[in-house]
Write a protein that binds this DNA or RNA. Structure first.
Lengths: 254, 254
DNA sequence: TTTTACTTTGCACGTTTATGCACGTTGTTT
DNA sequence: AAACAACGTGCATAAACGTGCAAAGTAAAA
């Protein structure tokens, strides 16, 4: 659990609440009161202000992250924790000064949040969510891929974005993973999304597949890249990873 | 904890406060007063000066690290109610089916939030915040302008974004307003930001200036557009708008 | 050295902000 | 319906704040 200064300034407290909100997607008034050592009344006042500012949505017992600020679909709190664990593992593959492609997707948004500050990283992304996660944090250069924003995907796709991506050389690529198979590789659902992922992967030295267990045996409609194009697999401890290790992938468990 | 000399020069003290600020992200007035052995009044004076110089943000009880490192997020929380009122007034100018340029800025994010759903609107923006405000809401087509993301502005700027904007025709433009003057028109602080605003305005049929009262008599460094390029002015009821009406602007009060 | 102009400081006073508590209301659970 | 937790509001208190002012300190001019 994060340390809290013994004397917390009122406005500082509000700021910390926002951070927790962005991290967990939810806050409980009673917990915050205990943590900051103030009455629940004060916490409620803070939440009221934040809600008025559109930063959160008040609910009975606490508050939830506002839909406008919420990364894609943060519905399931349990999945969030799993994705955060994967993200923490994934960012260990990143070295200072590197150039990264980060595709749209809720897992990748968590990766962006988990990236270390002040390491001179350059992030190229098609997702406003990822951009927002890095906005204002020190030590990041962010490049946004332009184009039509696809609602379901949560990022831009299309010729514009693909052309822009082709003009870049990156060290690492984190494509959003719909499905992975040991033999056939990475698959995607949407055609245009697929083209952008392919461009990203081709423009990168190494490709990291970050996938929860259920993505590992899943299937999708469009072929994105062969398994030989993937250099690392980041997944959960309970996954069957031996077969992936055998075909040359470096395994990282979150 | 760092030792402090028994006699500290005033300017030296300010410097040390900045260092603590950069290290901890926050300072408490009472702590500083004890440490430097001066009254809290003096500390407050220091903090006032530092805040005026943009080095920190004053809060009740002390100060927090300047908006340089946490730019848009904090500005978002300021004057929210006023900006929301302006936004509600601004969106009355929008008709179904229109194509809109929405520039980066905390007021414009509120405008995006206030836009009516299911009206087949197309929004072109350089701000991830604006994109996020519209993501997932029905009846919006969103186009993101690609390029390097500028932290302080909260949106992309540069040749990439300008070129993309030039290839579009829009009905309405909401440029982020730094300063407006009755005779000389719209002014902006950053050079590259300015170029993008100009491209947006030129690519639009009508231009709407949305500005709080204090922006109306303010000044900035770069000339963006003459007052004749502005078709509407959305501002607050207590503003002196007669002179703007006289030069042909349609006035909307929030 | 003395004089003068300027800066820095602490204090008094009135104002604003933050907080906790009491009390009545609303929402949730059983 | 009853029981309970969370909520909003009004209120009193204390801390922090801004301002004006006079004293103390400092630096350059006389």
């Amino acid at each position: 659990m994060n340390r809290v200064p013994d004397t917390t300034l009122p406005r500082e407290r509000a700021q910390l609440i926002v951070e927790r909100l962005q991290r967990d997607g939810r806050v409980v008034a009673a917990e915050l009161a205990a943590e900051f050592r103030v009455s629940e009344d004060s916490i409620r006042r803070d939440l009221r202000e934040l809600a008025a500012a559109g930063q959160c949505k008040r609910v009975y017992g606490g508050a939830l992250l506002a839909a406008n600020f919420a990364p894609l679909r943060q519905r399931d709190a349990e999945h969030i924790a799993r994705k955060q664990a994967l993200a923490r593992a994934a960012v260990t593959l990143v070295s200072p000064g590197q150039i990264l492609f980060i595709d749209a997707g809720s897992t990748n948004t968590q990766i962006a949040m988990a990236l270390p500050e002040r390491q001179d990283l350059t992030v190229i992304t098609n997702a406003p969510d990822v951009a927002n996660a890095l906005l204002g944090r020190p030590g990041f250069e962010v490049l946004l891929l332009g184009g039509r924003l696809h609602h379901h995907i949560g990022g831009t796709i299309g010729a514009q974005a693909v052309a822009q991506a082709r003009g870049i050389r990156a060290d690492l690529c984190f494509p959003g993973i719909c499905a992975v198979d040991v033999r056939s590789g990475i698959w995607t659902f949407d055609d245009e999304e697929n083209l952008l992922k392919q461009a990203m992967i081709e423009a990168s030295g190494e490709t990291v597949a970050v996938a929860t267990t259920e993505k590992l045996q899943a299937a999708a409609t469009h072929f994105t890249a062969g398994i030989d194009a993937v250099t690392h697999l980041v997944t959960e401890p309970n996954a069957l990873v031996d077969r992936y290790a055998k075909v040359g992938l470096k395994i990282v468990l979150g």
